[in-house]
């Protein structure tokens, strides 16, 4: 549930905005994104200057981002409202000239930072003061099991023995020795003018693969084609060879399983944590357990949702309290509208 229609209207006198349903917001987003696509064409009115930090004013890239975002919104709701999702996805994939999408890494929507403060890439800026993290064992093990070439890009070998070793989620400080575990790879944490990924080509390919798998009209692309294109795009981001070997790996080689699409998508979304978390909640792939040292006990999955801010609970309680029904331990209890998993708590 979220705000949409009554939000940010303090100056019109709305000091206690009511909440809208997630469904209404998602539908509204789809419509707005569709409309936005047509607005770009009116260059005279909507020309974007060169101060545009994402694309430097390249309108075509904005169009591709807009439509890919619509794909993402539709994909997200494709399990809970398949008919509407299908309409939007087919409309885009069937009219790529009207609705261009991100297809290559050149179109990636990455925010590129600057070399000096205060605009250094945030993970790198953090590394100036802190050095107490580790890569998660779930991801490391998946990458190792499939001999994934991205292992060397995502993580660094442990300084102790050169092995790749992950840490369990939520490990207690002191329960592992920094020299024995893998740290985040240089691509992601050591480059001051590095990037923050917002949307990447690989993700789009996997969305097409999923639509194709559902036998929706993707303009002729098959699930396998899109699946392999996604893997290729992801490897290409880090200039990695070994695509051919990787595609042939058991577990990676296309076997007509949606779970393969979901897993590869989850892997390719590294550093776009929000999107990976959302997809994981939608698809439950891979199965992530509950952090063993969490103060909240009795759960078998990572959190379902982010809690509402305390100021809303204090200052807008009339509107928010009814919406809190069913929420357990602040993060669980209520699944998102598009989270159709069962047997999770």
């Amino acid at each position: 549930m979220n705000h949409n229609t009554e939000a940010a209207q303090g100056s019109e006198g709305v000091t206690n905005p009511a909440y809208d349903t997630q469904e209404s917001i998602y539908l509204d987003l789809l419509e707005q994104l569709k409309q936005a696509n047509s607005l770009y064409d009116n260059a005279a009115v909507y020309a974007i200057g060169s101060s545009d930090v994402l694309f430097g004013g390249d309108v075509m890239k904005w169009k591709k981002f807009t439509n890919s975002l619509r794909l993402r919104v539709a994909t997200r709701m494709s399990d809970v409202a398949p008919a509407i999702a299908r309409t939007h996805i087919e409309e885009i994939l069937g009219n790529l000239s009207t609705y261009p999408i991100i297809t290559t890494n050149d179109d990636n929507v990455y925010l590129w930072w600057q070399t000096s403060p205060p605009y250094k890439e945030p993970w790198q800026a953090d590394s100036d003061d802190r050095d107490d993290h580790g890569m998660c064992v779930t991801l490391i093990d998946i990458l190792k099991d499939h001999n994934d070439p991205r292992l060397s890009a995502y993580a660094k070998p442990a300084t102790f023995d050169g092995e790749y070793r992950g840490v369990i989620s939520g490990a207690m400080p002191g329960s592992f020795t920094l020299s024995h575990i893998s740290r985040i790879g240089a691509w992601f944490r050591d480059v001051p003018d590095g990037f923050t990924p917002i949307m990447r080509a690989a993700e789009v390919h996997f969305m097409i693969a999923e639509a194709a798998f559902k036998t929706w009209n993707t303009g002729g692309i098959t699930a396998q084609q899109a699946y392999e294109a996604g893997i290729a795009a992801s490897l290409d981001e880090y200039n990695l060879d070994g695509y051919a070997d990787y595609i042939a790996e058991p577990g990676v080689a296309w076997n007509n399983q949606t779970n393969q699409i979901y897993l590869q998508k989850w892997i390719c979304l590294f550093k776009n944590g929000n999107e990976a978390w959302a997809e994981n909640r939608r698809t439950d792939v891979p199965v992530l357990g509950h952090a063993p040292y969490s103060p909240y006990t009795g759960h078998n999955r990572p959190p379902f949702r982010y809690p509402y801010p305390v100021s809303e609970l204090n200052l807008n309680s009339a509107n928010i309290t009814p919406k809190l029904a069913g929420i357990v331990d602040q993060f669980w209890g209520q699944q998102m509208w598009w989270d159709t998993r069962t047997g999770v708590n």
């Binding site: 940010a8 000091t15 206690n16 100021s311 807008n316």
Partner: peptide, 12 residues
């Protein structure tokens, strides 16, 4: 007096 953040302004 603080306002909920969802109004767009922190206080009035």
């Amino acid at each position: 007096v603080p306002l909920p953040i969802s109004t767009g302004i922190t206080s009035r």
